[in-house]
Amino acid sequence: MSTHEFHSAVVPPQGIWWSPAGKQEKTWIAIAFVWCLVLFAMMPFWHFKGGQNPSGIRYRVTPEAYEARVARFVQEYQVGEEGGMPMVAPPPGADVYLVGRQWQWYPALKLKKGVQYTLHLSSADVNHGFSLYPVNLNFQVIPGYDYGLRVVPNRSGDFRIICNEFCGIGHHLMVGKVLVED
């Protein structure tokens, strides 16, 4: 019986190289495979048991139609003005319409802690990135698409919306505001 042969990765293997793996390799592959299944299972699991999922209600919408919806929303629930921006306080459970434009998040929002809203996100022009700071909740905002996310603010405070998708030279100026009250 011939002894075991080892060769490097630049040597062409001779004859049949389809041979059983060693015990250590087999064990590692088995562990790694089970781990991969765990990684996979966690995502559907979180849809059932977890509170943070990017599912949302998703529609196509033209930028014009969406802007009109935002205007109606502002008109209906505006309570003041801040930083040159209407401050809007929708009632609990309401549909909230936020639009990203070069270079502002419109309008400013006043929400209640522990209450669910459907937060609609879309863009009037190019891609934007909705990033709630400092909560670190991030969603892509794309012209032509309405992303309606059911959100429940879990603490009060004065939050910012940072744009985190490059949207042109004024990108860094694009900061919005969300006030959450008890």
Partner: peptide, 24 residues
């Protein structure tokens, strides 16, 4: 990133934006 800072962003101080951003 864990602190919430965006990628592809020129000004981490957000100077000139309508609402001031406080960084930890």
């Amino acid at each position: 990133g864990i602190l919430g800072m965006p990628r592809r962003h020129w000004d981490s101080s957000f100077a000139g934006s309508p609402f001031p951003v406080e960084l930890p």
